[in-house]
Amino acid sequence: MITVDDKQMEWHQGMTIKELLDELEHVQFCAVVRLNGKLVSSPAFETTRIPDSAVIYLLPLIAGG
């Protein structure tokens, strides 16, 4: 299991951030997530694998300074 925005979700071996987002709704503006405290940006979504028990937050739309 993993935790995504405080909700439990199923996890599978080799799961990437892109696969996770494909399962979620309303994520078209998600460009950055925080995976176990570390920032991961959209160019790395396809290649970043999620470990089991990961805690993930989807960051809000990036709004600049």
Binding site: A31, V32, L39, S41, S42, P43, L59, P60, G64, G65
Partner: peptide
């Protein structure tokens, strides 16, 4: 964005990655 901890420095890696 954890701004209470990191201010606006979270933007550095995000801008770099994009």
């Amino acid at each position: 964005n954890r701004m209470a901890l990191v201010g606006t420095t979270h933007l550095v890696p995000i801008m770099n990655d994009h």
